[in-house]
């Protein structure tokens, strides 16, 4: 083995060691996390530019819709909050003219549509479901929300919180979903309603929504606070 070859093996070994280290080390450095967060914010801007306000998510046939839709949360379905229709109030806050809280009964008077769209999880799985509910844009107009504001935020009964950009909030397929598979939204899926946003990843579809607010400051997000990309458009 000549000297050059030996040097190369040494180089090869340290490359291997570096790869091994990256698995448990480099990612957790604050400076690395800051750099990755900066790229993630750049990706937010790219995605906002790519977003087509009128481009519809693909829709599917009735036969393709899954009846027993997958339950997904960081807690088990038995711990899902049970909201009673008599006590529930949807609180409104921020840049909204009429902040009177809404009851379930009043929410159900909103004009409703159905959509058969695909839920795509950030983990990679996907599932087609049939959703029924009111377009968020109709609701925002009804309550006199400032539609020139940048964001709409959501707070939820299970401690979850999310927020989306105004163009997505006004997208025709962004629904306040009261129904799943033609039936009243089950408790585990977010009764009385969940946001159904087929142009976003699954985690940006909050359930058990109890507050909607309109703001110019980017709302925080439960999984975004844990390092996921904020815009998460698909």
């Amino acid at each position: 083995m000549d000297l050059e070859r030996r040097r190369l093996f040494g180089g090869g070994l340290s490359m291997g060691a570096l790869t091994l280290l990256t698995g448990c080390d480099i990612s957790d450095h604050d400076s690395v996390q800051r750099a990755l967060a900066a790229v993630s914010r750049f990706n937010d801007r790219v995605q906002a530019a790519l977003f087509g306000a009128h481009k519809l998510a693909p829709t599917f046939s009735e036969a393709e819709a899954v009846k027993d839709f997958r339950y997904n949360a960081w807690y088990g379905p038995e711990k899902a909050p049970k909201l009673s229709p008599s006590d529930y109030r949807l609180t409104l806050a921020g840049m909204i003219a009429d902040k009177t809280p809404w009851t379930v009964e009043k929410l159900y008077t909103l004009p409703q549509t159905t959509q058969i769209t695909r839920h795509i999880c950030v983990e990679g799985w996907s599932m087609i479901g049939k959703w029924g509910g009111a377009p968020l844009s109709t609701f925002l107009q009804r309550i006199g929300a400032d539609l020139s504001a940048k964001y709409v935020g959501f707070e939820c009964a299970d401690g979850y919180y999310e927020g989306i950009d105004m163009p997505t909030a006004l997208h025709p397929q962004t629904l306040m979903a009261f129904k799943l598979s033609d039936e009243t939204l089950p408790t585990r899926h977010g009764y009385p309603f969940k946001m159904r946003i087929p142009t976003k990843l699954g985690f940006k579809n909050p359930k058990f929504v109890t507050t909607i607010y309109v703001t110019n400051q980017q709302p925080r997000g439960f999984w975004t606070d844990r390092g996921y990309n904020w815009f998460s458009g698909i």
């Binding site: 999984w223 390092g227 996921y228």
Partner: peptide, 16 residues
């Protein structure tokens, strides 16, 4: 720390 198996960091790496 946050109930996530490091997928958040992995995705941040991937999208960088």
């Amino acid at each position: 720390l946050h109930n996530d198996p490091g997928v958040a960091s992995a995705i941040a790496w991937h999208f960088a």
